[in-house]
């Protein structure tokens, strides 16, 4: 008995070239994922088909594509359910295409950076990366990105004897206040789903705002005031959100970016 096949149409694009559609008949099984189908096309039909993948288990966030118009992780999307409709694959919407199904996360990373996605403690935000403990370096001016002195990485330089440092206390309830927002894998499905991003590419967007919220809600963090001017007082951070909820529906990891955006907006409006 021949293997069952499914019709897969892929929107392809060479760098700088126009998009074009190609259709393949691809064998599949009950457990095949959309990623398995892409692999089959690459192996049997066209080795130049270009897409990202790595973990194949939904944790690395590499393989986001548009499946019949919905943003999905290819590795955890079953193919069999599309046997009647066929499968149409396209690059994630709203992001620059580099080749075929590969889109660029560079814009997201710069948006992420703009929300100061790191723990800001009482000593101030300014000390450079590698800062270890509160009080290990003098507070620097807000927003300064100058590196800290070498001694600030006291662990690496061996000056911190074991037992001297103690972990910060955080109750399970304090952890659960932000834990849901830590599940983001940066797959950018929420950007592809967001109706605002389509109209306004500058929108900082769901995942970056959810991560900002993650830090603001962390009991160990004292950076809310430093994040606020950007989040609350600039044009493209939280305000473009129209509370459509598409981001939360699209999230494959159960993160609720719409809640983060809604809560920021409500708090800002008092």
């Amino acid at each position: 008995m021949p293997e069952p096949t499914i019709e897969v149409t892929v929107t392809r694009q060479e760098p700088g070239g126009p998009p074009r559609e190609e259709t393949f008949e691809v064998p599949y099984g009950e457990r095949s994922s959309v990623l398995d189908l892409l692999d089959a096309i690459k192996e049997r039909e066209d080795p130049s088909l270009t897409y990202r993948w790595s973990c194949r288990s939904g944790v690395c966030g590499s393989c986001g594509v548009s499946v019949n118009g919905s943003p999905r992780l290819a590795c955890e999307t079953g193919a069999a359910g599309y046997r009647a409709s066929g499968i149409r694959l396209a690059p994630l919407a709203g992001v620059a295409v580099e080749r075929d199904l590969v889109t660029s996360p560079a814009d997201f990373v710069s948006k992420l950076r703009s929300v100061l996605p790191w723990l800001i403690d009482d000593a101030g935000a300014g000390a450079g990366a590698g800062e270890v403990a509160a009080g290990s370096s003098a507070p620097a001016p807000l927003g300064s990105m100058e590196p800290g002195p070498p001694a600030s990485d006291s662990l690496a330089s061996g000056t911190l004897a074991s037992g001297q440092a103690a972990p910060t206390t955080q109750s399970p309830a304090e952890l659960s206040a932000f834990a849901d927002f830590t599940a983001c894998v940066n797959c950018l499905l929420c950007y592809a789903a967001c109706p605002v991003v389509k109209e306004m590419p500058e929108f900082v967007g769901p995942a970056a705002i959810a991560i900002a919220r993650r830090w603001d809600l962390d009991s160990r963090d004292h950076g809310a005031q430093q994040r606020a001017p950007f989040l609350l007082e600039t044009e493209f951070a939280i305000w473009p959100c129209i509370q459509d909820g598409s981001c939360t529906i699209a999230c494959p990891k159960g993160v609720d970016p719409a809640r983060a955006l809604r809560d920021y907006q409500r708090e800002a409006m008092g």
Partner: peptide, 18 residues
């Protein structure tokens, strides 16, 4: 591991918060 804690690692906690 404590350094990671200072960077904001969301370690699971005991009831005492450690």
């Amino acid at each position: 591991l404590i350094h990671l804690e200072r960077l904001g690692m969301p370690w699971s906690r005991t009831p005492d918060g450690l």
